[in-house]
């Protein structure tokens, strides 16, 4: 971190700053060096078709098909060439939520005829139903398959372009503009907050489970809100000064080629195929997991 207001190079700010509340970034400009299939794809078609595929992947009912979806997403990730590390971070973000399923489901899933059940200890009050594991695995696999797809979806075109594509797909303009403004100010506030946090830290504040922590955290958040409210006014005035009339100018143009459409159709068909497979249980190993 920098002491106080930063005036040094961006490098020292973004990297040196405490890793508190690290916010991952999405690409801001076109990357010249890497040009995979995903990078060249018209963002509008990319978003629409990948989103459709995601919904298909999220609605499968067997572990086998869900794993197949995972494989498809993972290969997309490989083709897009985005770093695995970032995809792993996404999975780590869901880990706690999914772990809960693995712990809780085996203990609470109602016993159906044909379920394998193990009883712990003497009493019957702790029962482990192995069907619970497979249900949890299904949920985890589905979540993974969508999460893995996010990197190829978001990291292969600049974020503003992605948002503009969303606008072309029918998402209301104001929402898209707001998303871009938010994306900008999240980083501003993060820096502001970590400076404040460091300021409290060097005066010996260490959070714990006590009244004082709650009080100081309240001050801290209050400070953040007060400062951000003051900033909203100034940002708005700065916009007015430069001729803002309620609409953000866009200069993005999209062009689609037959290849783009073919790719999109391929993904949609893939999604439908996965659903059909799932419905008719034709996968060789689907019965195993069932």
């Amino acid at each position: 971190m920098k002491l106080g207001k930063t005036s040094e190079t961006s490098r020292s700010r973004s990297r040196g700053e405490q890793e508190l509340w690290a916010v991952p970034e999405l690409p801001g400009v076109e990357e010249g060096r890497r040009q995979t299939l995903f990078h060249r794809w018209d963002p509008r078609i990319k978003i629409a078709s990948l989103l459709l595929f995601s919904f298909c992947a999220a609605s499968v009912g067997t572990v086998g098909t869900a794993l197949l979806c995972c494989a498809v997403s993972a290969s997309a990730l490989m083709v897009a060439g985005t770093p695995w590390r970032l995809a792993a971070r996404r999975i780590a973000a869901m880990a706690a939520f999914l772990a809960m399923f693995f712990v809780v489901l085996p203990l609470t899933v109602p016993v159906l005829p044909g379920d394998q059940v193990a009883t712990l200890g003497h009493g019957t009050w702790i029962q482990i139903n192995f069907r619970g594991f497979s249900v949890a695995a299904l949920v985890a696999a589905k979540a993974m398959s969508v999460a893995l797809l996010m990197e190829p979806l978001l990291r292969t075109s600049p974020f503003p372009r992605t948002v503009n594509a969303l606008a072309r797909l029918g998402v209301p303009d104001p929402l898209c503009q707001m998303l871009l403004i938010m994306y900008r100010y999240v980083f501003v506030f993060r820096h502001e907050m970590s400076r404040l946090w460091v300021g409290m830290n060097v005066r010996g504040f260490r959070p714990g489970t006590n009244r004082r922590t709650i009080h100081i955290l309240g001050n801290f958040l209050g400070m953040l809100f007060v400062r951000s409210l003051e900033r909203t006014e100034r940002v708005h005035e700065a916009m007015l000064c430069r001729g803002f009339t309620g609409r953000f100018p866009t200069r993005e143009s999209f062009r689609s080629t037959p290849l783009d459409w073919a790719l999109g159709a391929g993904w949609v068909l893939g999604g439908v195929a996965v659903l059909l497979l799932d419905r008719y249980e034709t996968l060789p190993f689907s019965g195993v997991f069932r």
Binding site: P174, M182, Y185, M193, F220, L221, E233, H236, M239, G246
Partner: peptide, 22 residues
């Protein structure tokens, strides 16, 4: 005219929701 302000304020909430209370 308040939409940009909502956006700025929302990013503050976004950052605030990253705070962990022990």
């Amino acid at each position: 005219q308040d939409l940009p302000k909502v956006a700025v304020m929302t990013s503050a909430f976004f950052v605030a929701s990253l705070v962990h209370v022990p």
